[in-house]
Amino acid sequence: MFISNAFAQGAPASDPTGGLMQLLPIILMFVVLWFLMVRPQMKRAKEHKAMIQSLSKGDEVVTQGGIAGRITEIDNDFVRVEIAKGVEVTVQKPTIAAVLPKGTLKNF
């Protein structure tokens, strides 16, 4: 009378792919993200680690802060860099951004 009858709906049609087609764009997005962002970053980190391991006394380097100098002493975690005649600073190894070609500091 006042309340209408409620009938159960039929079962939804089953997806023959098992819902894989709905997840495919998300999976594809993660694959693209991996190749465009994560993988190159891992490659750069590996190259930086190899550069840090190959540092030697006398190398001319630039720190991440932009200080250029010549390595005078190498410790396990720290490097002493001569930035001017008689002026040395101690920096952590990971802060070395680049190794310069020999003779670069003579041009400054």
Rank of each mutant, 00 (worst) to 15 (best):
T95S: 15
P25V: 01
A98M: 14
D15W: 01
R39I: 11
Q53C: 07
V31M: 13
T104M: 11
P94W: 03
G86K: 13
I27L: 15
V31Y: 05
L33E: 10
V99W: 04
I26P: 01
F78R: 01
D59T: 03
T17E: 04
L28M: 08
P94H: 02
H48M: 15
G10S: 15
H48D: 12
L100N: 10
L24T: 06
A98I: 12
K49R: 14
V38S: 07
R70D: 06
G65Y: 08
K93I: 00
S4W: 05
L36G: 08
G19N: 11
V31K: 04
P12I: 02
G19E: 02
E73C: 01
K102V: 07
T90V: 13
E88W: 04
G69P: 13
S54H: 10
A97R: 10
N107P: 07
P101L: 02
G18C: 12
M42W: 09
L20Y: 02
R44N: 14
D15P: 05
N107Y: 09
A97N: 10
P40D: 09
V62L: 14
G18I: 00
E47C: 02
S54D: 14
A68R: 13
L36N: 10
G103P: 13
T104L: 08
T104Y: 10
E82R: 11
I74Y: 00
E82H: 10
E47I: 00
T90A: 05
L55G: 00
E88R: 11
N107Q: 14
A8K: 07
V99A: 06
F78E: 00
K102D: 09
E47P: 03
A45P: 07
V31D: 05
M37I: 13
L23C: 10
V31S: 13
V32R: 01
V81D: 03
I74A: 01
G86S: 06
S14L: 04
I96T: 10
M37Q: 09
G103N: 11
L20I: 01
Q92I: 00
V62Y: 08
D75W: 01
L20T: 02
G69K: 05
D59P: 00
A8H: 02
V89Y: 05
M1I: 04
L105G: 10
I83T: 14
G19D: 03
P16Y: 06
F108M: 14
F2N: 15
A6R: 08
T95P: 09
G58P: 00
W34L: 15
Q64E: 12
T63Q: 08
V32T: 13
K106Q: 15
G66Q: 07
V31P: 04
A98D: 14
G66R: 09
S56W: 01
T17K: 03
V32C: 09
L20F: 08
A50F: 05
I27P: 04
L20P: 03
T72M: 05
G19S: 05
D75G: 00
K49D: 15
F2V: 14
S4H: 06
D77I: 02
N107R: 14
L105N: 13
A45S: 12
G66D: 08
P16I: 01
D77F: 02
I67Q: 09
F7Q: 14
A45G: 09
M37Y: 11
P16H: 08
A45H: 11
A6V: 15
S54K: 10
Q53N: 12
V31G: 13
S56H: 04
K106Y: 06
Q22I: 02
A6G: 04
V79K: 01
L105T: 14
L36R: 09
K106E: 15
I67D: 12
D15G: 03
V38R: 11
I83A: 05
M1S: 07
